[in-house]
Amino acid sequence: MSCSSNHDKNIFLPKNAIIRKASQMTAFETHFTLKMEDESEFIYEPGQIVEAGLFGYGEIPLGLSSSPTQQGSFELVVREVGKVSKALCALKAGDTMTIRGPLGKGFPVSEFVGQDVLIVAGGIGLCPTRSMIRYIMDRRDEFKDFKLLFGARSPDELLFEDDLAYWRCSSDVNYLETVDKPNDRWKGNIGVITTLFEGIDHLDPATRVIICGPPIMYKFVIAQLAKYNISEHHIFVDLERRMKCGVGKCGHCQINDKYVCMDGPVFRYSDIKDLEEAI
């Protein structure tokens, strides 16, 4: 069957990607490194999403967790929550999953260049923001001061252990971390993510900020940022919704007049702060 339309692309038809590496990060999260089956380079921006799927099960929206500065492959993290994610998490290296995308609007990188950057990630919120963290680390000269705050519920839920180990000792990033519930081995900070702001005396009001985490986190972090006089125009939030189609049609991710999948998932805080259902 073929289509006779001048608009040839079928936005619902995915492409195959081969899993090069699949590693279980925590009890619930699996980290995939992928490559398009047709050997084409997957071109995207930090913060963009894909619809990852498996025929017979369905598709789910996922933020890319690798940076486009890394050539030859891209990375996704799947958390087991439902039917599709369970099926995806069972996949192994060499298996195929389907990819539609990249979709939506990512972080406006050019606005971050030449500025101080602060990224605040809670739990699984580290996955999509890692695309930007790695971008900055790979092109470190283009950015000024870089702070990264990461909070997880417990040490068992820390993601990307190798990255964390590197960030802890790297001079390229001022990395602060905390857990809500420590175990016996945990020697770091304890408390919710906002407690990390206690160690930050000063932030340049022009700092560009990214926030991504559980819904409850946004309001508290934004309240902290107000203390440093950071403009709402310079705060970017990465939102999560049930994006079914990923192309601004199905309506599931609509917040007032915005479609998270198409107008986001990254939004400038000043653009959405008055949308009641946003955060």
Partner: peptide, 8 residues
């Protein structure tokens, strides 16, 4: 039968 963990 296909091992679908959740049937719609």
């Amino acid at each position: 039968v296909h091992g679908t963990s959740k049937v719609y």
